[in-house]
Each structure stands twice: as structure tokens, then as C-alpha cells.
């Protein structure tokens, strides 16, 4: 049986006003489990309780009712946070620190040795394309660059459980794709990822299972494939056919199935077009700001399990 990393049981969260009256019921009786190695998506419109649920998993907020177990323990336990990585919705990094200092500082909070910290910082900066901006203060970064630093600090401890709140918000399509690839790679290494997002395509791309929240209620829960698959239909992709052959084939299908088959030229998605454009763009001029765009940005070696093991 697969190990359960997060258990949410009938969790409720009510925010109260000064007089103790219920002001907002952010989460209402939500229950689900997340297994090891799973990529779990939390979906829902604004104010549906996704971030609140994540903060309760981290012990920042406390449930009004119900129970949460994270890595087998209460979220209030300080020690379990050594195995958790959290990327908040807003980057909220110290603006006066440089990218390198930021990662080094968060590494120190996990008790990593100086040499190990330096190695991980180096690898994470390379992974997020910020190696050239290591000495710039985070306060001067664009939102997307700050997001990359935030992502890097999430992974500095090679966590077993990764909580990502809107991870691709503010990232360019390249960064967005890198994050998605990274999530998949981490899941393959047995890491558990819980992410919340408004971007349904992102969730669809990476998640094994999803939960849809609305007004704090759990409205749907299941495997992405099960939820998305339209079992009554199939789609066949073929190279472009001669019109006569195409009509003949459609006619044959109509006769055999009795249904009216539809055809269309498939469209490239905008992400693919964008990536192709970037790939063929001239190299950046000297002194250009911004994150380096490398489509094949490697996962940091320490995240692949090479070198030192995860911190205690």
C-alpha cells in the first residue's frame, strides 16, 4: 500500500470577527488524502479556500474543526518542516538580500553545512536561470525572477513534500514549462507535490489527481484522466490527407458506426509557438537583465539524488 503523506479529515476553517462571530467560512468539511509520489492539484476560483487549506497543512493557520496529518504528524510539529518545501502565492522574499544570500539564508534555517549549502545554492541558481543575477537584490527583480528565487528556496532542503501555491503565476512560458517538468521529475523520485492553480492547463499537464474547491466545499475529487476523459468519444490523429481520401474515409466511418465523424486541422498551442520563437531569437545583448531562458534547464543534481542526501 502506498504511504500516505497528507491526510485531511473533515477540515473546516472559519475566520471570526472581533465579536467572535463567523465572518468567513473559508473551508467546509474537506477530506482527502495525498499519497507519496503523487502530484495533487487543488483547483478552484478565487476565495475558494485553496491557500487557506495549504496554510493549515503548514501550521500557519489552525483548523476550526477536523484534523490534518502531514508526514504522519501534526502540522504544528516544527521538526516535520525539515521535510517540507513551500512556495507561497506571493514571493514575499527579503528585498534587501541578493538571490544568493536569500538561498543561503534559507539553507541555514535547515541546518545545512556551509559547503553543502554553497553547492545547492549554485545548482539551484543554475536550475532557475538566475546564476548571472546572483548578486542583485531580490527587491530589484521582476515578479517572474522573484518567483524563480522563491521556487529555488522551496527546494533548498530537497523536500519530501512540496506545497506550491500558484507556482506558475508570473512566470514566462519557458519558466512555466520548466516548473511543470520539475514537478514531474520530482514526483518520479517519490516526492509528493501539492499545487494549487487557476491555470487549468498547468494542472492538467502535471497532476495525477485533483480536488476542485468552491466556496470552501470539496466539489470534485479524482484522477485527472478519469475526470477529463470523455468515454463516449475517441480522436484519431493522422497526417494531412488528400481531400478525396479524407471524404472516403469519413464516409466509411459513417457507414460502419452510424455516427457523424468530425475533422479539423489541429492547432499548435501558443506555448509551443512562443518557445519556438525564443529558440530562434538572437542571443541576449551584454548587460541584459532578466532570467536566462534555457528550455532544457536541468533539474539541480542534488534534487536528482546525486551527492549528499536530504538533510536530517
Amino acid at each position: 500500500m502506498t504511504e500516505c503523506r497528507v491526510q485531511i479529515e473533515k477540515v473546516e476553517k472559519t475566520f471570526r470577527d472581533f465579536w467572535g462571530r463567523a465572518r468567513v467560512r473559508a473551508v467546509r468539511g474537506v477530506s482527502f488524502d495525498v499519497a507519496a509520489g503523487e502530484v495533487f492539484g487543488l483547483l478552484g476560483p478565487n476565495g475558494s479556500g485553496k491557500s487557506t487549506l495549504m496554510k493549515m497543512m503548514l501550521g500557519l493557520l489552525r483548523p476550526t474543526a477536523g484534523q490534518i496529518r502531514v508526514l504522519g504528524q501534526s502540522p504544528d510539529t516544527t521538526a516535520i518542516r525539515a521535510r517540507i518545501g513551500y512556495m507561497p502565492e506571493e514571493s514575499s522574499l527579503y528585498p534587501f538580500l541578493t538571490a544568493e544570500e536569500t538561498l543561503d539564508f534559507f539553507g541555514q534555517l535547515f541546518g545545512l553545512e556551509a559547503a553543502e549549502r554553497a553547492r545547492r545554492v549554485e545548482e539551484l541558481l543554475a536550475m532557475t536561470g538566475l546564476a548571472h543575477a546572483r548578486c542583485r537584490r531580490v527587491g530589484e527583480f521582476s515578479k517572474g525572477m522573484a518567483r524563480r528565487v522563491c521556487l529555488a528556496q522551496t527546494l533548498i532542503n530537497d523536500p519530501d513534500l512540496i506545497l506550491l501555491d500558484e507556482p506558475t503565476a508570473g512566470l514566462d512560458p519557458v519558466g512555466s514549462r520548466q516548473v511543470k517538468e520539475m514537478i514531474r521529475a520530482l514526483a518520479q523520485r517519490g516526492r509528493t507535490v501539492i499545487l494549487s492553480s487557476h491555470l487549468l492547463a498547468d494542472v492538467e499537464d502535471v497532476c495525477d489527481r485533483i480536488a476542485i474547491l468552491y466556496h470552501g466545499l470539496l466539489c470534485a475529487l479524482g484522477c485527472v484522466n478519469d475526470l477529463l476523459e470523455e468515454h463516449g468519444q475517441i480522436r484519431i490523429l493522422l497526417p494531412a490527407l488528400d481531400p478525396a481520401v479524407r471524404e472516403e474515409s469519413l464516409e466509411w466511418l459513417r457507414r460502419r458506426t452510424g455516427a457523424v465523424p468530425l475533422w479539423e486541422h489541429p492547432r499548435k498551442d501558443l506555448e509551443t509557438v512562443f518557445l519556438e520563437t525564443i529558440r530562434h531569437a538572437p542571443p541576449p545583448p551584454e548587460g541584459a537583465s532578466g532570467a536566462a531562458v534555457e528550455e532544457e534547464a536541468p533539474l539541480a543534481p542534488f534534487l536528482k539524488g546525486k551527492g549528499e542526501s536530504a538533510p536530517p
Partner: peptide
């Protein structure tokens, strides 16, 4: 929200 970033670490 800087402090929250520290408090989600084992500190």
C-alpha cells in the same frame, strides 16, 4: 509576510 516564510521552515 516575510516571517511566514521562515516559520514554515523547521525554525
Amino acid at each position: 509576510r516575510h516571517l511566514q516564510q521562515i516559520l514554515v521552515k523547521p525554525v
